[in-house]
């Protein structure tokens, strides 16, 4: 059913990292995502904006099948990653999530040491053979997460003992330690101060060289600063999707305009 049309699509969608096709999401009877189709490009930062409860997190969680963990959640439609349907029966969500990393809305470090927080992913994916390699990965990830200087002297202390903002950067570092191809970030900066936010934004821009980054944010300025593409969600619908500059300067849909000028909230 799925396979035949996908084959021909693979050709013309090559530059798209992720292609979502008529995606519907239901929580029990609640229709949370209505018929969303979107193409997410590689080496691009895509921002999802929209009022609270409009389904940004829900849609983001579809992209690495985190919604599978919610019993009442049902996803319909196709989502292709590199032309392969991630909702295909043959796909193992665990393998998918190693490719599509995620940073959650609330910082959720493991109650283990800072070192183990970062090392856990590479360990279970067998990315390293020895301790020295692992040390290098941990340091690199913490540096890219803009938190190395703050924690380098206490790597053996619990990650839960950090401040909220530090925890969030630890989670970002943890997500990139497994070298994903796509990084999904659900409001990664909501707990950060302006300095850390700037560091994370810089990091996102840097990650764009290698990855496709999808970021949910409530800050218009942030979306304008870091993203190349912006998608505006409203009540479960994808209202408008396009170049960030176009969305912010010249929105087509009146709802988008009211939202970015602060009239729907």
């Amino acid at each position: 059913m799925y396979d035949a049309p996908n084959l021909e699509k693979t050709v013309d969608q090559k530059e798209f990292k992720i292609t979502a096709d008529n995606v519907q999401v239901f929580y029990g009877d609640t229709h949370a995502i209505k018929d969303v189709s979107v193409q997410i490009e590689d080496n691009t930062v895509t921002a999802f904006i929209g009022p609270s409860g409009c389904g940004k997190s829900t849609f983001l969680r579809c992209l690495n099948r985190m919604n599978d963990t919610i019993d009442i959640c049902r996803v319909e439609g196709n989502i292709l990653l590199d032309g392969e349907n991630i909702y295909d029966k043959k796909v193992d969500p665990v393998q998918l999530r190693a490719k599509v990393g995620m940073v959650f809305q609330k910082p959720n470090p493991f109650p283990k040491s800072i070192y183990d927080n970062i090392a856990y992913g590479p360990r279970i994916h067998g990315l390293t053979r020895n301790k020295a390699d692992l040390d290098i990965i941990v340091e690199k990830s913490l540096r890219r997460g803009a938190i190395w200087d703050e924690v380098k002297d206490r790597l053996d202390q619990p990650g839960t003992g950090l401040s909220g903002g530090q925890q969030q950067r630890l989670c970002i570092a943890r997500a990139i330690a497994t070298e994903p191809e796509v990084l999904l970030m659900d409001e990664p900066c909501s707990a950060l101060d302006p300095i850390a936010t700037a560091q994370v934004e810089e990091l996102i821009d840097e990650l764009r060289q290698d990855y496709s980054v999808v970021i949910v944010t409530h800050s218009m300025q942030q979306a304008a600063r870091v993203s190349q593409k912006t998608a505006f969600f409203h009540l479960g619908n994808l209202v408008e999707y396009g170049e960030t500059s176009q969305i912010f300067t010249n929105p087509i849909d009146p709802r988008t305009e009211s939202y970015i000028t602060g009239r729907i909230g």
Partner: peptide
């Protein structure tokens, strides 16, 4: 959130 964290980085 602990389960999410582990699943999110590709743990089974």
């Amino acid at each position: 959130s602990i389960r999410d964290a582990a699943l999110g980085i590709g743990a089974s």
